[in-house]
Nucleic acid binder design. Structure first.
Length: 272
DNA sequence: ATGGTGGCACCGCCA
């Protein structure tokens, strides 16, 4: 079984349907995980996305903010929608892929949108930063509770809003005090990864010495020239699927499209 | 050192 998985923080699914169509036609993902859909499930453009070749759709939405959706050409069962910090935010959704081989566990795909954390990296005066740290801790606790780390077949994708490595930001030194790359965040990020021996699929394909970004601020006019990017979007796999991710690519071309998202899609091909 | 942009929904919030 081979499938192509893509993740993209779309920053409003409703106003970027044309860009989703353009991306899907060019890259033909079998599963597309979207974050920041910014709408309720009742407002979600099911018909338009089904028409793009995704008959199977799961949505966790809320009014105006956040929200994730997983679109699939392959049949799946809805897993769960976790509210990790109990604030009623729609930030997680998991699915279980059908068609697994006899005797194998299903493949679970987690789609996550970790809180951005606000501007000031101080949990005492900035509750949004506290929430982000709590959210990462809750992820660690959650995955620590999973058994059979080597046999569970799970993929986790999404906008995790942390750039963990020095080469995941345009300037390690200048961003150490900027939310997304501060030590309290990157340390927790490492703890989440360790909690289930998650594999960083993107870094399996691009050496840690090389810069690798998935997000460029809207505030930099010429994003390609200034290249002040960060790697905020991630694809992880459990040990049982680590070798199955046979290729990975960051689709930078979408960042040049008119009225696009500030995040670009990341694709991984799995050969199970 | 500062301000720079964008979406949604409300008369700012969140990113």
């Amino acid at each position: 079984m081979r499938f192509r998985l893509a993740t993209w923080n779309i920053n409003s699914v409703r106003i970027r349907l044309d860009l989703i169509e353009r991306f899907v036609r060019a890259h033909e993902p079998d599963i597309l995980c979207l974050q920041e859909i910014k709408c309720q499930e009742s407002q979600f453009p099911f018909e338009a996305l089904q028409a793009l070749g995704f008959p199977h759709i799961a949505v966790a939405g809320q009014k105006g903010y956040h929200g994730v959706a997983t679109l699939s050409r392959l049949p799946f069962k809805l897993g769960e929608r976790r509210d990790l910090c109990g604030r009623g935010h729609a930030r997680h959704l998991s699915i279980k892929l059908d068609g697994a081989e006899a005797g194998q566990k299903p493949i679970v795909v987690h789609n996550l949108y970790v809180p951005a954390g606000g501007d000031i990296p101080d949990p005492v005066i900035n509750d949004k930063f506290q929430h982000k740290l709590d959210y990462l801790d809750a992820m660690t606790a959650w995955f620590s509770g999973h058994r059979t780390k080597t046999k569970n077949r799970m993929i986790l994708v999404g906008d995790l809003n942390v750039a963990p490595l020095p080469t995941d930001v345009w300037s390690h030194k200048q961003l150490l005090k900027v939310v997304s790359h501060t030590p309290p965040e990157t340390e927790r990020f490492e703890q989440v990864m360790a909690s289930h021996e998650w594999i960083d699929v993107m870094r399996r394909h691009v050496p840690a010495e090389e810069k690798l970004f998935t997000w460029w601020s809207y505030r930099n006019r010429d994003w390609r020239v200034s290249n002040r990017g960060r790697r905020l979007d991630h694809i992880w796999a459990t040990q049982a699927l680590g070798e199955a991710a046979v290729s990975m690519s960051v689709i930078e071309e979408t960042r040049d499209w008119t009225r696009t998202s500030d995040h670009v899609p990341v694709i991984a091909d799995f050969e199970i």
